[in-house]
Design a protein around this nucleic acid. Structure first.
Lengths: 353, 353
DNA sequence: ATGAAAGCGCTAACAT
DNA sequence: ATGTTAGCGCTTTCAT
């Protein structure tokens, strides 16, 4: 197809308003040194002609691209899409991130990057060179990848690190994983549980450790032991099943289990069913994520809700602020999640009494 | 933040390879009139320097933007995201569309546009002016919006119309709605059902009508009547509940119901439960969409699977082909879905026998 | 407060 | 087969 030129350019507006290109540019970018009456006249022409600046031209002349790049782990994201298990992380990111971008006249471009790849750096460099984004949003496990973080820092592109406590580069945001784990644990303790098991997520994600910390902290605060109550997991259903079997097979099994993902909680529920353990009568279950399916299990799962949309939204705000020269926040932004109580948690069996 | 210049430009490559800009450009775009040895030399420099063309500059100089705009209905999409009912339409579009774009070096930008808005046209025009996409993917109900279709046609931008049978503008693609409805109906007839009810989707979507056509056609082919068996619906849970109540309250109620969305099927299931109607013993249910949650209902729902990813992927292919001068396909591309049989369908009660 | 000129990185059109 | 020139639409100097 032939070249497609902009139908209405800054030139047309300038001609229509009888001013120089410069003045129009100033009006578009809300710059000073334009008399109100001038501004009004130009704005009228803009509206009349339906003029919208070309972001390509804007970027070319060295200013902003109005593009924010959101980067997710390729393998995991595609697996989630293919698996159709209702993981709505991407949707929630779009909900929070895209809409916030739109408010500021920005656009969000979604990009998948492979973590387990020696050319992460090349991939990312290419995306940046091609798109010249004004900011980048990193999600786990990229948020703590030193190669990626170093590259972005060196290129002086404002970037958010979701699920990271940061360091001296980029803007860190967490979903208060430790606090959420504490709240989940507290909920179970309040119900009367003393032996609460925990199935962590993949150690590749820092937040997996924080959740364990939260659980351990709250248990300790209540004077409860955690020996033999921490299993192993990696977020997957299979790992959850193995962990649940391990925990329930022990001599003194837990009366409640917190799983670091919905898939692992689902697996725990299934293992309980297999062994004839009633949920929540004999075993309470709390999961992390609160994806759509947990409302449909039998019983529905009590779950930690991850404020993904809100976090993405904050990330966009912080990036745009940084772009405008705001100082880098020293402390990580912590967006608090919620605990949604459903049928999978109840008082423990009275046996001990 | 200050201006951020491209670190490696075509100039650097040209200098490094000792050739003109033009030759580098020819190599990048795989154009003819470059000797193999020359091409090799340039490619070596490109690789060595890690050069990636700026899409802004490419677009500026009148060629491609390597951007494809995917447009969805704002209201519905945001409602789906907020509702967290596991609707994974967007994810499947990204899965099919984004990955196919990546294969060709394109990028997909997701955009929400309000149908019920007098300024649909302005919104779309602005997005096009700002991004200058090489193609646009329309989804229902935009695909049949004459304002949008006319605008795109007039601007000579290749565009795909998912869920439309087309006309003389754009590239039409359907998910074989009529065929899917036929297969669902056939499945129930084969099980022995004679009275099969149908709850359609919103009349605003053309595909709603096609599904009804498929059901009616298959019923007629089997010599079965459809009087009083067609309810009203708009895809929503509430409309599904009303429709199910209506159908089940009739003097001679259906022994099976096909619902044009998972939400309406869910509602039908709930209405059946309320009335003490056993599923599938006394009532079989088939739904459309096959979103993640239908595997978790009691019983799991037999569902028509919509090949969203495959359709989006095809749309991208067709757009890129059109961009390269391929003739517009005259007939709509029909991507066939599947019927996933689960526990909600069985033989009808033997009562009639 | 406004305008004129230069240039961003790339490609189309035109040489050679 | 290769190089040269002009210009895309905009912003950044630098004048006025």
């Amino acid at each position: 197809m032939g070249r497609r030129r902009q139908s209405v350019t800054i030139k047309h507006v300038a001609a229509d308003a009888g001013v120089s290109l410069q003045t129009v540019s100033r009006v578009i970018n809300n710059e000073p040194n334009v008399r109100p009456e001038m501004k009004e006249r130009v704005q009228a022409s803009i509206d009349k002609l339906g003029y919208v600046p070309s972001i390509a031209a804007q970027r070319m002349s060295g200013s902003r691209s109005y593009l924010i790049l959101a980067i997710n782990d390729r393998e995991r994201t595609i697996a989630d899409w293919r698996g159709r298990q209702g993981v709505d992380w991407v949707d929630q990111m779009l909900l929070g991130g895209m809409l916030k971008c739109a408010e500021y006249g920005y656009r969000m471009i979604f990009e998948l990057v492979d973590t387990h790849n020696d050319h992460v750096e090349r991939e990312l460099r290419a995306a940046i060179a091609a798109l010249q984004p004004d900011g980048v949003i990193l999600t786990p496990p990229h948020s703590d990848n030193p190669l990626i973080v170093g590259l972005l820092d060196q290129q002086k592109i404002p970037f958010a690190r979701i699920g990271s406590r940061g360091g001296d580069m980029g803007i860190a945001l967490t979903m208060d994983d430790e606090g959420s784990a504490r709240r989940a644990t507290r909920h179970l303790i309040d119900l009367g549980h003393r032996r609460i098991g925990f199935i962590p997520g993949s150690p590749e994600y820092s937040l997996s450790r924080w959740r364990v910390d939260g659980w351990e902290g709250e248990m300790a605060a209540a004077g409860l032991a955690t020996d033999g109550l921490l299993a192993e997991g990696d977020f997957s259903y299979a790992s959850g099943a193995a962990a649940a079997r391990h925990l329930l097979a022990s001599g003194d099994p837990p009366t409640a289990i917190i799983a670091s993902s919905d898939q692992m909680a689902l697996a725990t529920l299934e293992v309980a069913r297999e062994r004839g353990v009633d949920v929540p009568g004999q075993l309470s279950i709390v999961s992390f994520d609160n994806t759509p399916i947990v409302r449909f299990t039998q019983p529905p799962l009590t779950a930690v809700d991850q404020p993904v949309a809100e976090t993405a939204s904050r990330a966009v705000e912080l990036i745009i602020a940084a772009q405008r020269g705001a100082p880098r926040p020293t402390d990580p932004t912590r967006v608090q999640g919620g605990l949604v109580e459903r049928g999978s948690t109840a008082a423990p069996p009275a046996a001990h009494g």
